[in-house]
Write a protein that binds this DNA or RNA. Structure first.
Length: 226
DNA sequence: GCATTAACCACAG
DNA sequence: CTGTGGTTAATGC
């Protein structure tokens, strides 16, 4: 499959399915396809950005270097757009994007993307809906981080990985302990300890990178009670 | 006071 | 990169 031709790409975004043939051709002509290995940076905080990035396959972390520590803002799973807020909202990126696994991405020229938003209402509408959903997610994440204690925060994120990212009670943890800490806003040591506690309580099972949710109800309870 | 929570440090696999 | 133990500070009965 040719991933650099928008017209024939089978991994088109929901929004892009509303694009007309000639619009897809224009997009293809102003789009660069690239592949990123685990750990490679897709775009960087504080750098000038002139592209919207569409992720076809893979998993990405968005992170921001804060005044006190590095925060993982959220994970993003393909298919999705990256960098619409940071490219449209400012000249300079407010956060970085780094691949957590092998990732295929398309860099769409911002001028072309703007043009599509203006000429194709259905495309724009789909993009807005997506942006709104993202904002709601971020609000939820914000409250989760600010108001819950660490067990609650950790449980919520384990459920997020299980439900939203992998759709399975069993998955390979794509993050290091330190990255889990950056995601849940705590220390690496605390993550280690808490995962051990959850494991001893038979709520989850950990085998190296493999995580298995054993007592889903309990995990939900912990996540809710905080 | 005393208990709990969680960060920080150091050190060892 | 991880796990553990000791220490310490903040907060809440």
């Amino acid at each position: 499959m040719d991933l650099s031709n928008c017209s024939t790409c089978l991994l088109k975004s929901k929004a892009a399915r509303y694009l007309l043939d000639e619009e897809l051709i224009t997009q293809t002509q102003n789009c660069v396809h690239g592949e990123f290995k685990k750990g490679e940076t897709i775009f960087k905080q504080n750098a000038l950005s002139s592209n919207i990035i569409y992720i076809q396959t893979g998993l990405v972390k968005l992170m921001i270097d804060g005044p006190h520590a590095t925060q993982i803002l959220r994970l993003k799973k393909a298919p999705c757009y990256l960098g619409i807020p940071t490219t449209m909202g400012d000249k300079i990126n407010h956060y970085s994007a780094i691949a957590l696994e092998s990732t295929q991405a398309c860099f769409i020229d911002i001028g072309v993307f703007r043009g599509l938003l203006k000429t194709n209402p259905e495309f724009s509408y789909q993009i807005i809906v997506k942006l709104c959903k993202n904002e709601l997610d971020q609000f939820d994440r914000c409250v989760n981080l600010v108001q819950k204690q660490i067990f609650g925060r950790l449980a919520t994120h384990l459920l997020y990985l299980s439900n939203e990212i992998f759709n399975s009670k069993e998955f390979i943890m794509p993050l290091t302990r330190n990255e889990i800490a950056q995601l849940t806003s705590t220390s690496r040591e605390t993550v280690s300890r808490l995962l051990n506690v959850l494991s001893k309580e038979k709520i989850i099972k950990i085998n190296g990178k493999k995580v298995q949710v054993l007592n889903y109800q309990m995990l939900v309870k912990i996540s809710e009670k905080g």
